[in-house]
Amino acid sequence: MKGQFIKKYSGLITGTSFALFAIAYLVGSLFIRRNKAISIGAEFIPELYGSILLFLAVCLIYQGIKAAKDFVPGEAEAGTKKDTKNVLLTFALIIAYVVLMQLMGFVFSSILFLVLMSMLLTPTDTKRNYLALVIYSVVLSVGTYYLFRNVMYIPLPVGIIFGA
């Protein structure tokens, strides 16, 4: 039922979120330092963009209301079940990875990330080959670290813990 509700008012919800964003952006433009030397200052263009976005958001809301009126509740789409939980897990893992990188350095966090991420993405019915996975993760992490840090001098984070 909940899915149906979101579907019915999707235009309305999206439009309202963008409208709120536009208003926040416009309010933010009030805090831009004014400069008298230049005829139109740094705040002018943000004000313009903000207003346009607000207008577009209102259009979207209008379309959304119309669509909601004409909405015919249909059958839930069969077959393609979207796994939102997995998306959130993936994103959380990515964030954890970046945080961890600053603490433990590139190599360690990357190995951990590659292993866990692959496990998240592997289809449920596929038999996992853990040995291959670990080898893949270690080789890729250590290899790229060596290549980019020691050969191309990109100072990838070594981390606080091991960075002595």
Binding site: D83, T124, D125
Partner: peptide, 13 residues
């Protein structure tokens, strides 16, 4: 992220 959405369901992969 989009792949993550479907990856669990082997048929799609």
């Amino acid at each position: 992220l989009i792949t993550a959405e479907e990856s669990r369901h082997a048929a799609k992969m």
